[in-house]
Structures are given as C-alpha cells and as structure tokens.
Design a protein around this nucleic acid. Structure first.
Lengths: 343, 343
DNA sequence: ACCGGTCCCGTGAGCGCTAACACCCGTTGC
DNA sequence: GCAACGGGTGTTAGCGCTCACGGGACCGGT
C-alpha cells in the first residue's frame, strides 16, 4: 500500500491548481479542452481516486445510502436489496446494509451508526421500533423512506404493500371456493403488516357473509417454526378450520409441514394461502397459492422515493397492490369438483 | 435538519478542549473522571455523533467493509452476507454491499467505488474478473479476502469451498447407487468453482472405474434458466444419461423442471445432485440430494479472515469441505430397490 | 477609451476531526 | 532543594477535498 495519491499530486503533474482538477472531476465550471485533457491524463497516469471522505467533509454528501432490513436471510428481502442497490448504483451511490435481527436495540444502534457515517438517505424495511423511538431516530436523518410502515412525520416518505387488500382477496378466494371456516395465522403483533392483515381478514370474512370469530386468529413468529406452531395451536382450538391465510410464505411453509405432520391433506382437508410469492412458493409441493408482490420493483421504487427526497421533492406515500396467484394449495375449483379431477 | 453538532460544540458546553472530548469518545489517553462525566453529559445533551467522514480523513480508517457479491438474489449469498455483517457489526464496522450482476465492468467499477470510499477491507465473493484485472484492482486495497477464488498475490487471504471434493463425493454416491452414465452441468466457464467441479468430476468418474467423456459435460449460466437449458442440451446429445451433478442448487432446480418437462421421472429415470444445500433444496419435490456448506459460517469466517488482515496478521488460505446430504432426488438405495419401495 | 460581460483559472479558507507535541502541576527520589 | 516523572489538559497543524471569491485576458458595444 503506497501512499495515497492526492488531488495535489495530480495538480502538480498537470501543472494546474487543485481547483482545476476538482472542476475536471466534477464536470463543474468551465475548463479549456486542452487543460481538461492534461488533467485527465495525469489522473489516469497516477490512477488517482478522489477520497470520498474528504469530499463528504466539504460537501456534506457521502454518496452512500443506508439500508436497514430485519434479516437479509428472509427470502423477501434480497430482491428488495437488489432493486435498491441497482438504482443506487445507477446514481453513483453505494449502499450500506445492516440487519436488525428482529432486535430493537440493534435497530436503534444501526440507525445511529448510519447517522455517524452521514448516509445521505435511509431506507428502513419493516421497522419494528415503537413509534416514538422510530420517529426520534428518523428525525435526525435528512431523507428517509419507510417500507411497510408509516410514521407520523411529514418528511418521511413511505412505500407500503396493501396487505389488507391482499388478505381480503385471499379470504374472498377461499370463501368463493366453498370454504366456510377460514383461519388466519396473523404473524407478530407489533408488525404493522400484521395489523393490516387482521383488518383485511375481518373485512373479507364479513364481505363473504360469514361471521368474524377471534378464535380463528392465531399470532406467531414470522418463521417456518412459527408457522408450524401457530397452525397446530389453531387446529387444536378449532379442528373445524378448513382453510388458512398465512402471514407470509415462510409461515405458510411451516403450516404446510404442520398439516402434513397432522395428516391433513392440503388442499383436500385444508386449503392454504401464503403471501409474498417468494420463489419457494411455486416449488414446494403442493405449490402455494399466494399473494404476489414484485419485490425487486419494490426495492427500486423505495430507492426512487429516496432520491426524490434527496432532490427535496415532497415525500410521497405509495401503496402497491398485491395480486392473487392461484396454485394447488388453494385451487380455483370448489373442493367437490376438485376431488373428481384427481387421478 | 438543523446544523450538525460538532465536537467543538460539545467542547464549549463541557468547558474543555476538543481534544479532551476526542479522548473521551475514543477512550484513549487519561481523562479525570469528573471531566469525563462533564463531557459525557454534554454529548448526551447535544446528541452529538462524531462525523465518520472527518475521522476517516484523519485516521485513514473508515470503519467500513466492502462486500462484493455476484447477486444477492442468489440464495447462496444472503447467508454469507448476514454472517459477514454480523461479525462486522460486533466490531463496530459497517458493510457496504455491491452486486456485480455477473458483469465484469460492473465488478471492476465496484472495486473502484469501494476504493474511493476508502473501505478498510474487502470481501469479494466468486470474482469473475480475469486474473490480471482482479489482481490489479485488489492490489490497491489494504486488506482483501477472496471467497471461492484464489489469486497469485501474497497479501490476499482466501476462503474456498472444496468443490472438487464435493463433486467427487457426488459422483461416487451416484456410481455406488448403480448409475453408469453420469453427466455434469458445469456452470459458467470463467468461474473458478466451475473448473474445480470439472476436476472433481473427472477424478470421481475415474475413481469409480468409469470412462471420462467430455460429451457428458455441459456449460451454462448459474441460474434456473441456465440449468433448464443445460439439461435439455445434455439430454439431446446424450439421451442415455441416467444421473446428473449440477453446478449448484439453483441450476439443479432448473434441471428438475426440465426433467419434468421432458417427462423424465426424478429419480426414477434421472438422478439429480445439487450443490450448496440452499433451503429450497429440502423443500422442492423431490427433495434435492446436495452438498451442504454452512454458508452463514462461511460469511463469518470471511469477515474474521479480513479482520486478521486488518490487524496485519499474515493472510491465510482456508478450505472448507462440503458434506453430502442424501435426499430423494438421488437416494441411497440403488434404482431397482427404490422401485419396489414405491407405493 | 471605457465599461460590462464571459471564459478560464488561481487563492484562501474551512469542512470536523485527531496525531503529535507542549505544557502545567503535584509527586517522588536523592 | 532541584531534577525527573507522569497524569491531565491545551495548542497547532493538517488529513484531502471544494466553496466562494477574485482577477486577468479577451470580447463586443457605445
């Protein structure tokens, strides 16, 4: 590691002032073609790379975005990260990533860490912090986009999946295919998408002319294990359940395993609907009926919303609608017909 | 966004010099308890966060690691990223992520980007750049760990999966369960794990007393689509193939779909072995026989190796062995027995 | 001849920290 | 009594850039 090349070295070699070199690099102000060429040559020859740290110090722009996810290992997030990183890349920005690991302290600490690093903007996915703490932490950042969470702060943009609609669609689908006792694996209480799903479930049930019954709703962790446990608990209480809407696909996978363990045929004895359309969903057996969201596009849009904020445009609040994808775990035909078509 | 609080503000409020504040923050040098307390209170009151940019400028340490992956969307990588990020986090480091998208220009550009941002260290996963370009780019970084790639440069540490061993194990397993015409979906030529797999395949075939035949090897992109295409190409040329070892699980998934499309029963008419033991592998139908690697641990270890380099310890070259996980896509029993046990 | 304007480039200051040293003062040693 | 020492603190300079100026050269208009 030789001593770093600085802008002064380039300036000396090119026979100009550092300011001229700076102007060439940033394509700002007028520089004569001949000069620009000399500078360019010096840069190439010395393999000079401007220090982003020094630039950050003077311009107060780090050209870095912070991206906070609960857990990159959850198949919902890599696509989002990829989408956001692609957009950042196109704009010459770098993305710093932090996992909160579903831990409030770590979430808070990560937000501070990003602050110390002076990220220009922040995308926070599925924040779990309570409103007050989250609001306080975000207020210290210049530009923030919240994914699947809303906060009462005028300068924070947000991007949400319409989970209520999704769950409503799922319930409607199940009801229309003859299911009379539809349960809900509702996920973690503090998550905002969970409460939206509860809402959509309630509305969907009533819209289908059925009676809402709280004993058909079961909380649980958003993991395979959580889904497994939740379905067993639900079926123990309400063995008459003939269909279940799950918090997400991972939970649905756990539920699927539980159904198999309990000897319940899916979809014959129990129809299952997931959510997110993770790639897994189409590959398991039976393939999962689920609610599709284009997560890559979600990530891109989150970044776009952030750059809008960085250009000082007013924060927007975008809601995207999921789309029901019907597969074998909750097929289109009513149960009786389905039995006939089976070989 | 009010004006940023600086160290000078804290110093003024606490009635000391900025140097003393700095000493408190960095727990460096001696400060009287009473003074430390006053400074601490001032920091808390002003909610002061030291600017990492300024620190980077003076200390030449950014407390940031760069992490380069081909594509975070490939299920092999999130666990690695998570492992590396966890270790970085424990050490107070932030991780900047870049996807190369299997594009050499972007890979090169990302390395430069990281250089401009003065990351303290770099983890590069599955670099695709040709040796010369890669070496040149890496030489400009202080500390580098290469994952699944080796480079002739004494200061670069590396961490490799023994893919040759893995493939050998897979071939041995297939041969011992009665398969006589074993193919290989070898992945992208320029990838180093691909050449290691070719090697292991060759050795495995000969060790099993069979004859190596180049027409049984098929290249392809490391994606589902690539696997689909590759298997079709291979079977078109060699319809007699009765088992296939795949570049990774994602490719195996594509191959599985292709087999289904061609009406080939798996494992009845074609046994399939994947690689990586992505979670998907155990959930598809039939579950994939594959080579397991603890990717989370891999990510952690990569970061550990990097921190060793940052402490100026000599670079190490670690090789981890994969482990064969037998599932239904290439079961333990020889084909004939397997037919009987079917219901 | 003078003024204003545009193009091109340099000067000086300062972004917010910390390394290195200088300094002061109360001990301790002889 | 004075040197030597070390804990506690301040001073100075500079890390590598860019902002805000300023100013010379050269143009055209009056």
């Amino acid at each position: 590691m030789p001593n770093r090349v600085t802008i002064a070295d380039v300036a000396r070699l090119a026979g100009v002032s550092t300011m001229t070199v700076s102007r060439v690099i940033n394509a700002k102000g007028d520089v004569r073609d001949a000069t620009r060429l000399r500078v360019q040559r010096a840069i190439d020859q010395l393999e000079y790379r401007p220090s982003q740290a020094a630039r950050t110090l003077t311009t107060r722009r780090s050209h870095t975005l912070g991206l906070l996810v609960p857990d990159i290992t959850n198949p919902f997030f890599p696509e989002i990260v990829r989408g956001a990183e692609d957009v950042a890349w196109e704009r010459g920005y770098l993305v710093s990533l932090a996992n909160t690991v579903e831990d409030n302290d770590r979430e808070r600490a990560a937000l501070e860490h990003f602050e110390a690093h002076r990220v220009d903007g922040l995308i926070v996915c599925s924040a779990r912090l309570p409103e007050a703490a989250l609001g306080a932490a975000l207020r210290r950042h210049q530009a923030v986009v919240l994914l699947n969470r809303r906060v009462a702060d005028e300068h924070v943009a947000s991007l949400e999946v319409d989970d209520a609609l999704g769950t409503r669609l799922a319930v409607a689908h199940l009801a229309s295919t003859g299911h009379r006792t539809i349960g809900l694996l509702a996920g973690p209480r503090r998550s905002s998408s969970s409460s939206k799903r509860r809402l959509g479930y309630h509305d969907g049930i009533e819209a289908a002319g059925q009676r809402f019954d709280a004993s058909l709703v079961e909380d649980g962790e958003p993991s395979e294990d959580g889904g497994h446990r939740a379905l067993r608990a639900l079926l123990a209480r309400r063995p008459d359940v003939d269909a279940v809407v799950c918090y997400n696909d991972v939970v649905a996978l756990g539920a699927l395993a539980a159904a198999r363990d309990l000897g319940r045929d899916v979809p014959g004895a129990l129809a299952l609907v997931g959510c997110d359309d993770v790639r897994l969903a189409s590959l398991v057996h039976p393939p999962l009926t689920t609610l599709r969201i284009d997560t890559y596009a979600l990530g891109r849009q989150a970044a776009e919303l952030l750059f809008e904020r960085l250009r000082d445009e007013p924060p927007r609040h975008v809601v995207v609608a999921p789309e029901l994808v019907v597969r074998a775990s909750a097929p289109s035909m009513p149960p009786l017909t389905r039995e006939r078509t089976r070989t």
